[in-house]
């Protein structure tokens, strides 16, 4: 299925959860924040939140320095 990932259309496995998407991308959950359709998905819901075709997903990494 297709989702919009950080502004670009991407093909991901059907029925992926947020956790599944992060694993698919090789992204470590603790280093990022995830938003689906402009709402934050908290880490305890990564397994339970199933993505739908056309979802807009933003994966944003922490930036620490200053």
């Amino acid at each position: 299925m297709q989702v919009k990932l950080n502004g670009e259309i991407r093909e991901i496995p059907e029925g992926s959860s947020v956790a599944g998407l992060l694993a698919h991308l090789g992204v470590k959950a603790q280093r990022v924040a995830v938003e689906v359709n402009e709402a934050v998905v908290t880490k305890d819901r990564y397994d339970g939140h199933t993505l739908r075709p056309g979802d807009s997903v933003e994966i944003v990494a922490f930036v620490g320095g200053g």
């Binding site: 950080n6 502004g7 938003e35 402009e38 709402a39 934050v40 908290t42 933003e58 944003v60």
Partner: peptide, 8 residues
């Protein structure tokens, strides 16, 4: 990137 976020 600019997101429109809502509270957890």
């Amino acid at each position: 990137l600019v997101t429109k976020s809502s509270r957890a």
